[in-house]
């Protein structure tokens, strides 16, 4: 894998994880303040832009690599989102949830490698 391919895989993954966290924040806030709120709109827009970047980069990568080759990297998103949600969103992650997320990630990697 070239440096360029690795770079785009990382950018795609980071933008996907960041988008999920921003969208979660926006939807969480919407339960208190409703949808007619400038902050809500900005967060949703930010999340959509990041998701779009991730989508097109993935599309570009799919033209060069097999889905099974790219999937292990997508599997890592489970771990990254669980960890960052615990830190950034202060969601409670107990041992059971952490082990569950780890097993899902490892499982996805094994499914893709086989």
């Amino acid at each position: 894998m070239s440096f360029l391919a690795f770079f785009f895989i990382v950018v795609s993954l980071v933008s996907f994880v960041a988008a999920q966290l921003i969208l979660k924040r926006a939807m969480q806030a919407s339960r208190r303040t409703g949808f007619r709120n400038a902050q809500f709109a900005w967060k949703i827009a930010g999340g959509v832009v990041l998701m779009t970047i991730s989508f097109f980069l993935t599309l570009g990568l799919l033209q060069r690599f097999d889905l099974s080759y790219l999937y292990p990297f997508q599997g890592l998103s489970v771990i990254f989102i669980t960890l960052t949600a615990a830190v950034v969103l202060k969601e409670r992650v107990n041992l059971r949830l952490a082990i569950g997320a780890l097993l899902i990630s490892v499982g996805i990697v094994l499914v893709s490698l086989s």
Binding site: R96, L97, A101, L102, L103, L110, L113, S114
Partner: peptide, 23 residues
């Protein structure tokens, strides 16, 4: 066909999902 390694991966994901969903 699903290889033994892939079955292992599927089993791990199922166990992981069960752990996350149980609470």
């Amino acid at each position: 066909l699903i290889s033994p390694l892939r079955w292992c991966g599927i089993a791990l994901v199922v166990i992981g999902l069960a752990l996350v969903a149980k609470p």
